[in-house]
Write a protein that binds this DNA or RNA. Structure first.
Lengths: 347, 347
DNA sequence: CTGAAAGCGCTAACAG
DNA sequence: CTGTTAGCGCTTTCAG
């Protein structure tokens, strides 16, 4: 006996539960499997039969149950997505690119936000895997051993996104943050600046910003320059933090810098605001450079010199590779998306 | 005979498929249902038995299959979330609040982005429902008849978010956008301004902005003032659009306005940049007001006069009410989250 | 082109 | 406290 209100008559259940494939089949006068094939447009079904089934489905307001379908062997159309944050527009952009591409193929992201917490990331991964997704897209904060183990044992396509500097178990799509920092160093040095400072945010959590800093340092070294003051303020990057941070950096600096590289555009825009308020001429008194290529930086009275990080594109490419793999293809293991230095008016 | 490679020996399957509850049970020397109870901490299980099961689960690297669990009757822990956009930080903030609250209770959002397209919204709704989520959170663009029908027939808790001006079938959490526009009208009128203009973005897609405009108009009328020029530019709101838009508005205006109300902060920040570039003194020559309370507006040299829209809070409250309902509670049908007018230095 | 049988991995109900 | 039985709604395999 079924375990809901002792009824095994489908007509009764129609009142309380969603219609099932079996009901659609009966209404169309065919077997369950034929209805299934008709609705999925899989296998040979007579045109007429299919029409009948489809009409029955619409009449009953049938919504397939993909839990049952996936359990029975159909490929899941869910993709687990783990991001470190949503406070930053950067990850919202990536998610947009992801969702857009996935939805085109009828896939949907199940979302988890790790807040840059490796343990939360680990738990999230376990939770998402319990839904048996078709694949995984993850912007790792810091992978624990358990995380690595889960990923390795999961036996599904995994795309790690944002950077291509770290090791990845399966596929990776992103830019080289070290390379971006280095490119900015060469650009600024080429513009004639020689005394540099760096202003960053909570570095313990954002290792990609750290990679840019190291790339910047290395790039300067290559042209025989040493990076001067480095100030990293706790907390996430914000415009106010950049504004206050630059004031503090300039106040504390032993030798005043000619140019400041910021951990990202939010911080750099804050810096631009400080200069404006303090009457510092940009770029003559002080040059400013950011990272990300946010529209806000480009809309400043003096467009910000920065690097476009192609966020939405990264999400799009990650999804494309995942879908390709699911379709039996063999996409590249590492996709180094080009960044683009945007010469603005601030450096 | 099982339909994968003709094996019905679990030990073989361990190589190719994920371990199942049955394997955990066998390893612990108990029945499946006992293992199930032990891992879910449901029903009476001897302490010792539970320990054995848990050790076995860890040893086998067991990850439960929630598709099977949910199909068998356990409550789903997925929540369908439909948002109109992710380009705008506003919805990323809401999503953050949602995810944060949901994850605390072990729930995860399945995401769909409608791009303000009613038909895409409809398809999305159908897709998400096919995963049999425990509930739904939706920021509707424009509901079609089908959408209404699906929602009504879905028989699950639904929270409509962002605004409380429209009709909702089940629960609603948001602010009154009409009220916000009205509040800004009263505030600006109280500051002595009398000649007003409005600058907006693609109004056809964003009906909440339209509600603010109508509220603004109504508020002005209440104090005996008529709204002057209204300029709505196609496309999504961006800083550059606000900048160019204000230039155009001022050029075309018959009588120059004393104050401009923008559709949101992005647009208003653009307006502030235009004033700065064009040498227009703010607020003496021209007062500016936005909506949302974004940090960028507050970090401007002159903080923007605006209205905080409590986005993350809306997401958090929506999730809280959903969870409450799922737990058998009876949260309010309409939750009018207070907005907060932030008097800045621009009006 | 259509169908019957079997089973995906799990949990609710009912017995011991 | 533990187990047996049945079945969630669907798709696979194999047989017409």
């Amino acid at each position: 006996m079924p375990h809901f209100h002792g009824m095994d008559d489908d007509r009764q259940d129609t009142q309380t539960r969603r219609p099932t494939l079996s009901q659609v089949a009966r209404a169309a006068g065919v077997s369950e499997i034929t209805a299934s094939r008709a609705l999925r447009r899989d296998g040979p079904v007579a045109r007429d039969t299919r029409d009948r089934v489809e009409r029955a489905a619409i009449a009953l307001n049938y919504v397939p149950n993909r839990l049952a379908g996936t359990l029975a062997g159909a490929a899941s159309r869910q993709v687990g997505v783990i991001l470190p944050s949503l406070s930053n527009i950067v990850f919202a952009d990536v998610l947009k690119g992801l969702e857009d591409r996935l939805e085109g193929d009828g896939y949907h992201p199940i979302l988890g936000i790790s807040n840059y917490d490796p343990l939360r990331e680990e738990r999230l991964l376990r939770d998402l895997l319990s839904w048996r997704p078709a694949g995984l897209v993850i912007a790792p904060a810091r992978k624990t051993e358990v995380t690595r183990g889960l990923l390795a044992a999961a036996d599904l396509p995994v795309v790690e996104i944002m950077d291509v500097d770290a090791e990845s178990a399966d596929m990776a799509v992103g830019i080289s943050h070290h390379g971006a920092g280095r490119a900015m160093a060469h650009y600024l040095a080429g513009r004639g600046y020689r005394r540099f400072a760096y202003l960053g945010h909570g570095i313990e959590t954002d290792f990609r910003a750290t990679q840019r800093l190291e790339g910047f340092r290395d790039g300067l070294r290559e042209v025989g320059v040493t990076l001067g003051d480095v100030l990293c303020l706790p907390g996430p990057s914000t415009v106010p933090l950049g504004r206050e941070g630059l004031a503090r950096l300039l106040a504390e600096a032993e030798t005043p810098p000619e140019a400041v590289f910021f951990s990202n555009d939010d911080m750099a825009v804050g810096g631009a605001f400080h200069c404006q308020a303090a009457g510092i001429a940009v770029p003559d008194d002080l040059a400013l450079a950011g990272f990300n290529g946010l529209s806000i930086g480009q809309a400043l009275p003096k467009p910000l010199t920065t690097i476009a990080s192609q966020r939405e594109h990264i999400g799009f490419v990650a999804a494309t590779h995942l879908l390709d793999r699911l379709a039996g293809g063999n996409p590249p293991r590492v996709t180094n998306v080009d960044f683009r230095l945007i010469p603005g008016a601030t450096a």
